[in-house]
Design a protein around this nucleic acid. Structure first.
Length: 800
RNA sequence: GCGGGCAUGGCGGAAUUGGCAGACGCAUAAGAUUUAGGAUCUUACGCCGAUGAAGGUGUGCAGGUUCAAGUCCUGUUGCCCGCACCA
């Protein structure tokens, strides 16, 4: 058959769409499978080959499930709010709505050309009013639950994008959107209290099937630590200096305290401080430093001693100096630490530099050389001296602190509350009203969606306020509570809002009564398998788990976790082995590949190129190799005759069915395709195959190259859609040959192979081995020390 | 610094979990076919063995366990990713 992929692909894409064969039904009696891929941000650049790989994995899994009779939900949508669209709109003088609609159309067209089996009736668009109505609804529920608050603190601010960023969005001190340097700025912003869910987010990981590295990254990001809070008195003052420590057992070794440059103590005790100017200068210097500079100077500690005040060690009454230094962060713990130079590397470096005493309280190291951070018996520690290890002495100290009322057990998290706002136009308006009398009041549920007003100018204000602030008709409103004059909040929600719950909307995308029908949620949840990128592990994946857990707590969703299983695809690199980028000119446009080789070749190639989870470079020649394979498949009907099984190919087929089935489940698509190639090679070595075997072959290949398989399926008159035909099953008994080849070894060295009947016993195998002339020659005249026989595998004869 | 991962031909990568290393594909070479280019087909293809065979050797490096190690253990080097002064 001539492989005219262009007309074949168009024909089947049209038929699938016409017959809606990929539409999920709400027939709750059938077993369901919900496969989810991370919906794209519809950028103007269109699809990237990375999208193809990201979707092809679950595309194959869901196609297999569909053929296995599951009611499959494999939806697609668009995460369309965000800065790139808005910036494009500003630059080109077009409304972001127009840009978004155009981009979504473009993406849709492209996705359809690849032949993905998405359910196109359930498309969601996060910028649609009927969608963001429910994003705002969830926000309102969180507001009611006390999970939304405003706080004036130091925030991550991107001067280029002119927005406040969350911690997750400024990892490594770089803006996640434009990659420029983030600065710290004091600003009054919205937060979602994600830390209230820190324990639940950690514990929920036990009940889900996530790869170990993803789990670990989330655990580290949440960063729970157990320790103690201790209150130090300030000499001659009623003020206390509260610190957090994980090593309260070393309290007797404290020789100084350090507070962050932004610590409030500097203000409250300002009158008593003798060197205000020096401290102010240091503080100003710290604020000038970028995140990058601060991390570069890890070894070289700086700081200033606060003169005029000192602290009292609550366990021994010793007077100790207080320093300010930027190695203590205001954002973690209490922004103040007790320093134990003998047993902490940072404190040690600081003490050495400033000539502070170093008192050993744990035996085991040499503190004249370096800090000892290991375990050991206590010394110089009063009542703790009787304890031999950390565990016991911490427990004893905690008891002491609580008895004396000078401290208590505590937990800390590295994760911070989610700075939830953008001072920009193209996002969900935050449904809050500021009333001079009532304070912050939520927009009533029945008034949702709170629509984005039409504006002429999307430019953010220089002072970092949202363009919405300039729209009087939007800002000025009446208070929903008292009816008096009030002003609307003008910040919008960040990029991650809409994507935090989109998988729920797919379940019931047109519902106008609630975010999704309860019975449907019960049937479809949780998502059975979610595939996406590693870059979302500490962003979207953690945010959406948080929202889901909240919705679970208020009874909206029936499961405590959204995703039962998570996997991640590896990146496709440029042909030169580095990340694809426009500036390097190594970008591959997937639609060019579709044009030149066809969608089936593209789909097969992205899965064949290597381990699905690993990065691999693009290779044009290998793409042609996949095309060649499909061309040979197209010729298969010419070699087909009769029915039943072909002698000599029976086990090959059963083995292939087994291999392809299990490989798909393990996302080992490369070896699944290799198995089909091998099978085809074997078929070509034979005179031909039967129609029954062709049917098996097509159904195995169909999830990978569905257009070609449908075409042959139809031509051969198998009836119906290949995509809906039952996935082949294998007979375990037929996956083994009657006669098997075993390895022969002498003294562990491979000498050759010999054929024995399958299931041959030890004696038969040994006899066969000894009958082999190479083996016979080598053992002749020697003493046999040992004979090892592994059934079905090998015979090893050890001689002396 | 901490945490996780990886290391196999010229290249991408396989290896039933301790049992014939290099499946499958690419590239390359020779031959066939073709007016030519391309396409296709056949054969070869880890390295050493000056050629062929016999043989030897081989999974970053050094040891070890075992009849048998890419796989397990100890040490070591290099690379990648994540977090990073987290008290």
């Amino acid at each position: 058959m001539k492989y005219d992929f262009k007309s074949i692909e168009k024909k089947w894409q049209d038929r699938w769409e016409e017959k809606k064969i990929f539409a999920a039904t709400d027939d709750f009696s059938r077993p369901k499978f919900y496969g989810l891929i991370e919906f794209p941000y519809p950028s103007g650049a269109g699809m990237h080959v990375g999208h193809i790989k990201a979707y092809s994995g679950l595309e194959v899994v869901t196609r297999k499930r569909r053929m296995q009779g599951y009611n499959v939900l494999f939806p697609i949508g668009f995460d369309a709010f965000g800065l790139p669209t808005e910036n494009y709109a500003i630059k080109n003088g077009v409304h972001p709505r127009t840009v978004t609609d155009r981009n979504i159309r473009h993406f849709t067209e492209q996705l359809k050309k690849v032949g993905f089996g998405f359910d196109w009736d359930r498309v969601v668009d996060t910028t649609d009013e009927n969608y963001y109505k429910w994003t705002q609804w969830i926000f309102r529920k969180m507001f009611d639950a006390g999970l939304v608050f405003r706080d004036k603190t130091l925030v991550n601010y991107c001067p280029s994008c002119k927005v406040v960023l969350s911690n997750e969005d400024s990892q490594g001190g770089k803006c996640d959107i434009c990659h420029s340097e983030v600065v710290q700025k004091s600003k009054d912003v919205w937060y979602l209290r994600i830390t209230a869910y820190a324990d639940k987010l950690l514990e929920g990981l036990d009940g889900v099937d996530y790869p170990a590295n993803i789990r670990m990254q989330q655990e580290n990001w949440i960063g729970r630590s157990y320790g103690a809070f201790v209150n130090f008195s300030i000499k001659g003052s009623s003020e206390k200096l509260r610190i957090y420590t994980t090593r309260c057992d070393t309290l007797f070794g404290v020789t100084f305290m350090v507070i962050a440059p932004e610590h409030p103590l500097l203000d409250t005790l300002r009158d008593r401080i003798e060197n205000k100017e020096e401290l102010d200068a240091y503080k100003a210097e710290c604020q000038k430093k970028t995140e990058f500079e601060r991390t570069q100077l890890v070894k070289d500690k700086t700081g200033v001693c606060i003169r005029g005040i000192s602290a009292i060690n609550p366990v021994n009454g010793k007077e100790i100096p207080i320093y300010i230094s930027d190695y203590v962060m205001m954002g973690y713990g209490t922004g103040a630490i007790m320093a134990v130079p003998a047993h902490d590397e940072r404190d040690y470096a600081f003490a050495k530099k400033f000539g502070i005493d170093i008192i050993e309280v744990i035996k085991g190291g040499d503190i004249s050389k370096e800090a000892y951070t290991g375990d050991g018996p206590m010394v110089n520690s009063g009542f703790l001296n009787v304890y031999e290890n950390k565990k016991d002495s911490i427990a004893a100290m905690l008891r002491y602190l609580e008895e004396k009322g000078i401290g208590e057990k505590g937990v800390q998290y590295k994760m911070k509350d989610w700075a939830f706002n953008r001072q920009r136009y193209w996002g969900e308006p935050i449904p809050i009203v500021h009333c001079p009398k009532c304070g912050m009041v939520g927009v009533p549920y029945e008034e949702l969606p709170l629509k984005l007003p039409q504006v002429e100018n999307f430019e953010p204000g220089e002072g970092g306020e949202s363009p919405l602030a300039k729209i009087g008709s939007f800002v000025n409103c009446s208070c929903p509570k008292c009816g008096g004059k009030a002003k609307r909040e003008t910040d919008t929600m960040p990029q991650w809002a809409g994507s935090s719950w989109y998988y729920l909307r797919y379940i019931d995308p047109k519902n106008d009564k609630c975010l999704a029908d309860e019975a449907k949620l019960r049937y479809w949840l949780p998502v059975d398998w979610y595939n996406g990128g590693m870059e979302h592990v500490t962003r979207h994946l953690i945010y959406s788990r948080f929202w889901h857990k909240f919705l679970y707590d208020i009874g909206v969703v029936p499961t405590s976790e959204p995703y039962a299983k998570r996997s991640a695809q590896g990146m496709i690199l440029g042909a030169n082995g580095v990340k694809m980028s426009k500036s390097l000119g190594n970008v591959v446009d997937p639609l060019d590949v579709v044009d030149q080789y066809g969608a089936d070749t593209l789909r097969t190639y992205v899965l064949f190129m290597g381990d699905y989870g690993a990065a691999a470079p693009w290779n044009d020649s290998s793409v042609r190799g996949c095309k060649r394979f499909l061309e040979r498949v197209a010729d298969l009907p010419e070699k087909t005759a009769g029915t039943g099984e072909t002698k000599g190919l029976v086990t090959s087929f059963h083995k292939a069915v087994k291999k392809v089935s299990s490989d798909i489940e393990e996302m080992k698509f490369n070896t699944a395709i290799a198995a089909l190639m091998s099978l085809l090679n074997e078929i070509d070595g034979h005179a031909g195959i039967t129609k029954d075997e062709l049917s098996v072959f097509l159904r195995l290949l169909c999830p990978f190259a569905p257009h070609l398989c449908e075409e042959i399926w139809e031509k051969e008159g198998f009836g119906g859609f290949c995509s809906l035909a039952p996935f082949p099953e294998y007979d375990e008994a037929k996956t083994v040959d009657d006669e098997i080849e075993i390895a022969l070894q002498v003294c562990g060295k491979f000498k050759g192979t010999v054929k024995v009947p399958n299931g041959a016993d030890r004696e038969t195998m040994l006899a066969a081995a000894k009958a082999d002339e190479r083996v016979a020659a080598l053992i002749d005249g020697k003493t046999v020390v040992k004979e090892i026989v592994v059934p079905g595998k090998l015979v090893n004869i050890v001689v002396k």
